[in-house]
Design a protein around this nucleic acid. Sequence first.
DNA 1: ATCATATTTAACCATATGGTTAAATATAGA
DNA 2: TCTATATTTAACCATATGGTTAAATATGAT
Lengths: 129, 129
Amino acid sequence: MVKYDDSQLDKVFHALSDSTRRAILARLSRGEALVTEIAEPFEMSLPAISKHLGVLEKAGLLKRHKDGRIRRCELNAAPLETASDWICFYRSFWEAQLDSLTSFLDKNKKEKAVNKKSNIVNLIKKKEK
Amino acid sequence: MVKYDDSQLDKVFHALSDSTRRAILARLSRGEALVTEIAEPFEMSLPAISKHLGVLEKAGLLKRHKDGRIRRCELNAAPLETASDWICFYRSFWEAQLDSLTSFLDKNKKEKAVNKKSNIVNLIKKKEK
DNA sequence: ATCATATTTAACCATATGGTTAAATATAGA
DNA sequence: TCTATATTTAACCATATGGTTAAATATGAT
């Protein structure tokens, strides 16, 4: 297993563990926004939002650009790659649980096979709908 | 953006936000284990480990099988798929930041293109080592 | 200079978290 | 039945978290 930066992962996963913060990231995925704009859809005070932005910033997921009186907030998705990599280690486990296609896998080409299987599984899911 | 179960994601990401718990999952990825076995490498009391197991269990990442006096713990990676799906929405963002290959992408085949690009990026990374 | 706007900081509060030790529980074995 | 083993529960503690309101700060506009 590859070695990850524990304290970085702590911060990123913690930042993602709150639905308000996930919603803020979703908002920023549609483009930069001012603090006030970010806060608007939430029934929460501005200081509360400001704290959430701080948590996201410390996790490296958000960058604040001071621009006169206002402050533009920008998504910085890079740290999500580390989180994604960490989770991906477990992909073969959840896919093995999902069904029994795993038995077809050529263990020497595990990663490629897993990707192929993933596509098959998605096709099956779509047909079921 | 697809709709996710917020409280489920809250629990899973929170469970992942602690390095002890991530280490426990890593241990379980090598196979089932007893509570005592899980606790062994940590400089922490058994009740502390027991609490961590509780957090993982509530997130659905761990299953405990009572088997006489002992309790076997098993990894249940399924909830990680939801977390992975959530994060994957942002893949194009971190890849766009990574370099400028993005400009080659056919926006109508974004997902396929992103996968292709991902491979290219990995190749480049390997060459750099 | 004054006032309004955008945002953060400070001080506070209730609850959650991550740890501890000691006691309780359940079961295996002598 | 008595004792040792495996694990959880209870009670406690310090710190962190997520929220509040009020005050401070910084800048733009009149």
